[in-house]
Structure formats: structure tokens, C-alpha cells
């Protein structure tokens, strides 16, 4: 049907690169959480190094998208596809940055911190990884009903974050000597919560792609 075969191929390649970057961001969170519970400082440092690969993938998506804007002069939905590719790749890169922040928290905690890492952080992270899978599916199928579910999941994450912070504050009251360590756990909760906000942004971009209007799913 299409007479712009080369352009279609370029769009497909952009889409595949974004899906790949999304899975990288998800896997960086998975590793960061695993390393946090393991207390493995060496592996945490490895996560920081691996972030450079994600940064360069984001850069490649941006370069490709800008070149397509210049060469193909897209309009309508094609234009929106490319604009959201740039925006989504930026969100994905920020998501991976939050994984590195979690790895840094592991490094700050050190190997013998002697506190139990709150299991709720892992639960929160698992839900956020489900959000990544859903976002990828919504992006792939340009499906706004899936994208709108991200907002509902983000609400659950926000509530979990609130209750974890409250719990941490109570802990600091009874364990003032461990305040530094407890704060690191509160930070991790914050990083996971921000990670989820970026996924919700991806949902907004899918709405923009399909509807041609901006929506706020982060309310």
C-alpha cells in the first residue's frame, strides 16, 4: 500500500530501537534492585558503567529521528511518531538513570550495613517493571486503552511510595543511629516512584500519537 517503503523501514527501525531501550531500562531496574538486596557493591558499580550503553542508544534514536525530520519532512501521525520517539527515548534514559541512582544507594549502604532492606521496595519495583511491559505493548500497538492503565498503576505506585516513606520516618525515630541507611532506602523508594512517572509520560506520548492532543496522566 505505502509508496514510501524506505521511510516505513526507518520508522520501524526507530520503533524497534525504542522497544529495545525500554527493555534495557527495565533490566537495569531489575539488576539494581537485585544488587540492592544482595548488598553487592561490585555489581552496583557495573550497573553505573552499563548506563553509558543506554545513553548511547538514546543518542542514536535522537540522531535517527532528527535525520528523518530533515530528510522525510513528515506530517500528521508520522510527524508525531518521530516527535514521541525523541521524547520517549529521553524518558527511558532518565528511567535508567534512576536505576543507577539505586545502584549508588547500594554503594552508599556498603556491604555490611546490617539493616533489612524493606521487601516493599522489591514489590514496588516488580509493579514498575510490569508497567514497562505494558508501556511497550501500548507503544507497539499504538493502543490508548492500554496506555491509560499506566495512569492507574502509577497511582498504586504513588500510594506505595507514600506508605514506605511514612514507615521509614517511623524507623528513623526508633533507630536514630541508622538514619543514614534508612534514608538511602527512602531514596530508593523515591527513585522507583520517579521511574514510574517516566513510564506514565510514555503513556501520555502514546495518547498524543493517537489523538494528536496532549493529555496529563500524571495527575
Amino acid at each position: 500500500m505505502s509508496i514510501r517503503v524506505h521511510f516505513e523501514e526507518e520508522l520501524e527501525s526507530l520503533k524497534n530501537q525504542i522497544k529495545e531501550l525500554a527493555l534495557d531500562a527495565k533490566s537495569s531496574l531489575d539488576s539494581a534492585i537485585h544488587v540492592l538486596y544482595q548488598g553487592d557493591v561490585e555489581k552496583a558499580k557495573q550497573i553505573l558503567e552499563d548506563d553509558a550503553v543506554i545513553d548511547s542508544k538514546e543518542e542514536k534514536i535522537n540522531d535517527d529521528a532528527i535525520l528523518m525530520l530533515a530528510k522525510q519532512q513528515p506530517v500528521a501521525r508520522d510527524l508525531r511518531r518521530i516527535v514521541i520517539a525523541i521524547k520517549i527515548s529521553s524518558d527511558l534514559e532518565r528511567m535508567a538513570d534512576h536505576s543507577t541512582n539505586i545502584a549508588k544507594a547500594t554503594i552508599h549502604l556498603g556491604e555490611d550495613h546490617g539493616i533489612d532492606i524493606d521487601p516493599e521496595l522489591r514489590e514496588m519495583a516488580i509493579l514498575v517493571m510490569d508497567m514497562v511491559d505494558l508501556a511497550v505493548k501500548a507503544f507497539e500497538n499504538e493502543d490508548i486503552s492500554l496506555a491509560s492503565k499506566l495512569a492507574e498503576m502509577d497511582d498504586i505506585i504513588d500510594k506505595k511510595y507514600g506508605s514506605i516513606v511514612k514507615e521509614m520516618l517511623e524507623l528513623t525515630a526508633v533507630n536514630p543511629e541508622q538514619i543514614q541507611h534508612i534514608m538511602q532506602m527512602a531514596y530508593v523508594a523515591r527513585y522507583i516512584e520517579r521511574f514510574a512517572d517516566h513510564i506514565t509520560n510514555i503513556g501520555e506520548n502514546i495518547f498524543y500519537l493517537v489523538k494528536g492532543k496532549t493529555y496529563d496522566l500524571n495527575k
Binding site: 500500500m1 505505502s2 509508496i3 514510501r4 513528515p74 506530517v75 500528521a76 501521525r77
Partner: peptide, 10 residues
């Protein structure tokens, strides 16, 4: 219109 302006006119 979309098909025409995006070059997908078959």
C-alpha cells in the same frame, strides 16, 4: 487526507 499528506497513497 492523512494517507495523501503522509505519502501513503496507494
Amino acid at each position: 487526507t492523512e494517507d495523501y499528506i503522509t505519502g501513503r497513497f496507494g
